[in-house]
Design a binder for these strands. Structure first.
Lengths: 228, 228
DNA sequence: CCGCCTCAAATTGGATACAGTATCCAAATG
DNA sequence: CATTTGGATACTGTATCCAATTTGAGGCGG
């Protein structure tokens, strides 16, 4: 009994999944907070069944975790150690993704890749204070497009299995616009390597980019006390 | 430490998950077969809700996939191309896991690792024809223990995101006992590198092991026509 | 070949059973 | 008299079931 009887191609469970995903990304919920099903059911005005399914599917993103017979909870924030281990994992995966993507460069890929690069550059040069989400969205798009272009679903899947974690990182680290400028420049160098059809160079530059990001993250790290 | 002294507390959803997982691993279902919820509900004698939850959780293993408004299906078998890409992904992840594990070698780790190594060796020398599952279980345990010892939950998670895929591979490739002998020997070499506290050597040997396995898989490859 | 009809299956809504937790009251203790 | 403690009770939330609704697919007649 949907109140908007438009021809929906999406199920309630899909909509709840998307809504919760967005809210978790935006930090709407406190880390560790309980996600109890009857409350969410009332909040989203659907019954408990689609909520339950959406939560089950969110579990593998790392944004939500489940304790048997206790329910679902928002994943806790990262410790410094975890942050470091995440970056180490990215250091393993992303150069390999860049290498494979570099072997499959197409004009369309280059065109699509330019969008998040320019976005990040523009944001970093803007005097206006922007939300973290904008920076991260541009950064994430860049890395995500490369993962896609690797043409290896398993490698891409392994990268995406870190995806939710990467976003939780977003809530823990304050990225200054100076950092964003560095990142934008590094993205551009990787792009240039793609243009030059130099996969190994792209992989090396990606390794360097992530190592730099890791250092920036560890030095600039601050817990989020104020809101965005 | 919660100990279940009086009532053993497992939910129906957990039991259904474990049962389905085992049956999917054993190839009880045909690839691509529909897994419809009412039928499973009758079969396992529980209602549809725990079935639904178990399937949602199984989706992340790659053993099962879902099409919106059409239901759940057993994942299809691998093509040769996919098999190759899976091995490529393992080639990225597993040397890195071996490297990290090699930096954290403990006597307990070595002791636990010896078990699947010996199992595989014993199986490969046995004259009796054994089921694929036994070979694969020993092989999987070996690699899984190393992933665990890496002490990087993200890297380990990325490896495990391939886990179900690795098992689907099992249904596609016929591993002869000759191959198992090679694998057992290679496992032993990696073990020796761990004993010698030589992480880089362990990583190199792991790379070599997976490359060899890849070649063996591609040359020996046969679709499964007969059962185990 | 096309549209209608029928059926099976997914999806959803709500009700129930059950367990764990918090709360409150009163008796016992210092 | 204040404080603590035992236990009963209310409440919250998960896990489960079942019934109702909606959608998709295939058969049948035009």
């Amino acid at each position: 009994m949907a109140r908007d009887d438009a021809p929906e191609r999406t199920t309630h469970a899909d909509k709840v999944y998307a809504l919760l995903f967005g809210q978790l990304m935006n930090g709407t919920f406190d880390p560790g907070a309980a996600l109890n099903i009857p409350t969410l059911s009332r909040k989203f005005e659907v019954s408990q069944t689609p909520i339950r399914e959406a939560l089950a599917r969110l579990e593998h993103t790392g944004l939500v975790h489940r304790e048997a017979l206790r329910g679902y909870f928002v994943a806790p924030l990262f410790s410094e150690v975890e942050l470091d281990k995440l970056m180490e994992a990215r250091l393993v995966l992303e150069p390999a993704l860049a290498l494979e993507a570099g072997r499959r460069v197409t004009p369309e890929f280059l065109a699509k890749l330019l969008v998040p690069i320019d976005d990040l550059l523009r944001l970093s040069e803007s005097q206006v204070v922007r939300s973290f989400r904008e920076y991260w969205s541009a950064d994430e798009d860049f890395h995500s497009l490369i993962a896609e272009q690797s043409a290896n679903p398993f490698l891409e899947g392994a990268y995406r299995s870190l995806g939710g974690q990467v976003q939780r990182f977003r809530l823990f680290v304050k990225l200054g616009s100076a950092d964003a400028r560095f990142a934008a420049a590094e993205h551009r160098q990787i792009y240039d390597a793609f243009v030059a059809r130099a996969p190994e160079a792209a992989a090396d530059l990606m390794r360097h980019h992530i190592e730099s990001a890791r250092l920036r993250a560890l030095s600039d790290r601050k817990t989020i006390l104020a809101n965005e």
